[in-house]
Amino acid sequence: MSLGDSQSNGDSARSDDGGYGGTGQTRTRYHDQGTGGPYGGARRPKSSRGMVTGVAVVALLIAAIAFANRGGDDSSTSASSTAGSGSGGSAGQPDTAPTAASGEQPVTKKAAGIPTGFAHNREGAQSAAANYAVTLGSTGMFRKDTRDSIVDALFTTEAAAKLKGPLDKAYSASFLTRLGLDANGNAPEGSTFVSRVTPVGTKTVSYGGATATVDIWYVGLTGIAGETSTSPVTSSWKTWTYDMSWSGSGWKIVSYSEKDGPTPVPGDDRAADSDEINKAIDEYGGFTYAR
């Protein structure tokens, strides 16, 4: 999906059923037995030591699982949680969002409804690019007023000034009509216009501190969901490349390009009807993407 165009896991499970010590045998020892036996003589068992060892192993496993689930907590949070009860924090839940794969916290600020405040580093540039792609692939780009606001928010001043005219021509009335929309970018009554971009992954092509080039691989959904629609919602796979610069307060797009794919082989999934698509669009919100 361009700015001027419409837009099984194979779980590998492995089970290792090894016996204790890898012998596959059971050792039996008696309290008062002397020397002899297949294992070179039995010793008096110490049940208290075995119990303490078992408890310690369980405790270590619980701690390891809790630590893995915590993700990218900072040192102060980790220290306070460790000093607290053994339940894994006050609520027992991970402190980082699942979208923060590397442990970087997602941003909490927005400007004109667009996430902002991404870090001045490689990961911040990727996070900004992913979120900007979501906005540039949204239905807001099909309406003049919201499109201008989006362009002003995401692009440098110079780039925005040069881009608005060509975008107005790209999103012309005739183009919107071909999509089944009116001249203002609205779907027919009783129908829902769908335009969404979902980033699958990002990659830093180059990074120079004040500049960055980032690839965003995404799947786009575009079309009109409705019983009488002649433009059903379809998917497309593309890659956007953003050349970005650091403005002093955030990342801005200087220029962009787009190419098709990589496109997976289509599966055998049943296509949803218009009611299902309408319901999904209404019920499922988007994400704030962070690396």
Rank of each mutant, 00 (worst) to 15 (best):
V134Y: 06
K144I: 14
T146G: 07
I150Q: 05
G165N: 10
A129Q: 07
K169G: 08
L136T: 02
A159S: 10
D168L: 12
I150S: 07
K144D: 15
T139K: 09
D168S: 15
D148T: 14
I150F: 05
P166W: 04
G137D: 03
A159F: 12
A128K: 02
I150M: 09
D145V: 13
Y132A: 13
A160R: 02
K144C: 10
G140L: 02
G137P: 06
F142L: 14
S149R: 11
D152H: 00
R147K: 01
K162M: 12
Y132P: 05
D145E: 15
A129N: 01
K164D: 14
L154N: 03
A130F: 03
A130I: 00
T156H: 09
L154G: 07
A128H: 09
K164P: 09
L163A: 06
T156W: 05
K169Q: 10
G140K: 08
A129R: 02
K144L: 15
E158Y: 10
K169W: 00
Y132V: 08
L136S: 00
D168Q: 12
Y132M: 12
T156D: 03
A133F: 06
G165W: 12
A160T: 05
A129F: 00
G140N: 10
G137S: 12
S149W: 05
K164V: 13
I150H: 07
L154M: 10
D145R: 12
R143C: 13
K169F: 07
N131R: 00
L154C: 02
K169P: 08
G165H: 11
L163I: 07
A130C: 05
K144R: 15
T146P: 06
T135D: 06
A160D: 07
V151H: 03
T139S: 08
N131G: 04
V151I: 11
M141Y: 06
Y132N: 04
T135R: 02
S138H: 06
D145K: 09
E158D: 14
F155W: 11
T135F: 01
A160L: 10
K169C: 13
D168N: 15
L163Y: 02
K164C: 03
V134S: 02
K162A: 15
D152C: 09
T157F: 09
G137M: 12
A159I: 04
M141Q: 05
E158K: 14
L167M: 11
D152Y: 08
N131S: 04
G165R: 09
Y132C: 04
F155T: 04
A153L: 13
A129Y: 00
A160H: 08
D145M: 12
L136R: 01
L154Q: 05
D152T: 09
V134K: 00
N131C: 00
A130D: 01
A128D: 06
K164Y: 11
A159H: 02
